[in-house]
Design a protein around this nucleic acid. Structure first.
Length: 385
DNA sequence: TATACGTGGAT
DNA sequence: TATCCAAGTAT
């Protein structure tokens, strides 16, 4: 980077294009993107779904299917959590046509544990749409991508920029954080979305928009972090208003959250005498844990009116309370009673027997795996006595 | 605009 | 233990 000039912009010069919040936006002079991309060329994270800046410069293009898959998985989910799922999905279903041909239960089972299961339902719906209606080709513009199930404002822009070189503003949580620091945007999220988008659009270069977006996300993940950002290492720190004021940790400003309510219910683990298979059923196709499998549970109600206990069981049996499972969701905390019983015959309710050897492939969310573990631990304890 | 929607790791 | 947080979308 050349030395900054001190001119009409003010004593700090500018690397970005900032005016005060709410003022007429000035056009970026391109130096922000230039500095960021130079840093990215040296420090880009190596990720399984990514084409390195060097390979990209050599003409290698990312596979839109893999870009799309990674972006869906990465929604509200850490890179560390996604890596294994991305590897197994792309190995099992290497193309969008292959994924489109998968059964619902296979995909839900493969997604189990990753969370936000509407993503898996939409993933399959999107794959089937692309395979059957679009000749296996993803749309190439953000506007068209936006119409696909599970592809929203962020994801459509990310795919368009990364896979198809469209110079659209890509705004995720990292980039919101960076933008609010650069410009000291005091408006709390999510109300600050509009000025943030305007700033990011202004900074986005016509060339290498995909690398720019990924560079911003790498910057947010490794330097411009939520807590204790490493400003001394920042390649664009000179253009950051918050850093100049020593207030980088005060951004982004966020709206206050309400308290998490508590809910409770009961789960009933019916074990088949002999082989230890457990009775599972499918949850309704939408809503909480929609489309996933579970041992029968009651509704999850607020603490006062919970009708729990053995009388709430789906079938009559010699039910025993063997413990509790606590699980924190985004918007409530759940405590589930875990009841077990033995059965010699089919219970006569909707569902199926899942033997221990097939349990791994079942679409069991983490909560339900905890329930089954609690039941199994009780059985192991009883056997040891 | 506000709320529903998972999970695991960090502090 | 409690809280926050991560490449958001749908309604």
């Amino acid at each position: 980077m050349p030395a900054r000039t001190r001119g009409a912009e003010g004593p700090e010069g500018r690397l970005d294009g900032r005016g005060p919040e709410g003022s007429q936006p000035e056009r970026s002079d391109g130096r922000f993107a230039e500095a960021l991309l130079a840093w990215y060329d040296r420090h880009a994270r190596v990720l399984p779904w990514r084409v390195s800046p060097a390979d990209l410069a050599a003409g290698i293009r990312p596979d839109p299917y893999r870009v799309w898959m990674s972006e869906i998985m990465l929604q509200q989910t850490t890179v560390a959590a996604v890596k294994g799922y991305f590897a197994s999905f792309t190995e099992r279903w290497p193309t969008v046509e292959a994924l489109a041909g998968a059964a619902d239960a296979e995909v839900m089972g493969a997604w189990a544990g990753l969370g936000y299961y509407a993503r898996a339902r939409n993933l399959l719906a999107c794959a089937r749409d692309v395979a059957s209606q679009r000749g296996g080709r993803f749309p190439e513009t953000a506007a068209e991508l936006r119409s696909l199930p599970g592809v929203g404002e962020y994801t459509s822009a990310a795919i368009a920029a990364i896979a198809f070189d469209e110079p659209v503003a890509v705004v995720d949580g990292n980039i919101e954080r960076i933008a609010t620091r650069i410009a000291c945007i005091e408006t709390p999220l999510p109300a600050a979305r509009r000025p943030i988008r305007a700033l990011v659009q202004d900074l986005t270069p016509a060339k290498r928009p995909g690398d720019f977006a990924q560079a911003m996300m790498d910057l947010g993940a490794t330097i411009c972090t939520p807590r204790r950002p490493a400003c001394v290492l920042c390649p664009v720190g000179e253009g950051c208003k918050a850093r100049r004021q020593g207030r980088q940790e005060l951004f982004p400003v966020k709206a206050a959250k309400g308290a998490k309510p508590a809910r409770e219910g009961a789960a009933f683990v019916l074990r088949r005498t002999g082989d230890g298979a457990v009775w599972l059923r499918r949850r309704p196709p939408s809503g909480m844990l929609g489309g996933m499998s579970e041992p029968p549970t009651t509704d999850w109600s607020s603490r006062a009116d919970g009708a729990t206990g053995a009388e709430a069981a789906p079938v009559a049996a010699d039910w025993r309370l063997v413990g509790f499972v606590r699980h924190g969701f985004t918007h409530f905390d759940l405590t589930l009673e875990v009841w077990t019983a033995e059965a010699g015959a089919d219970p006569g309710i909707d569902g199926w027997w899942a033997s221990p050897s097939t349990l791994d492939g079942e679409a069991l969310p983490t909560l339900m795996r905890k329930v089954l573990e609690r039941a199994a631990a009780d059985q192991a304890g009883a056997a040891a006595i």
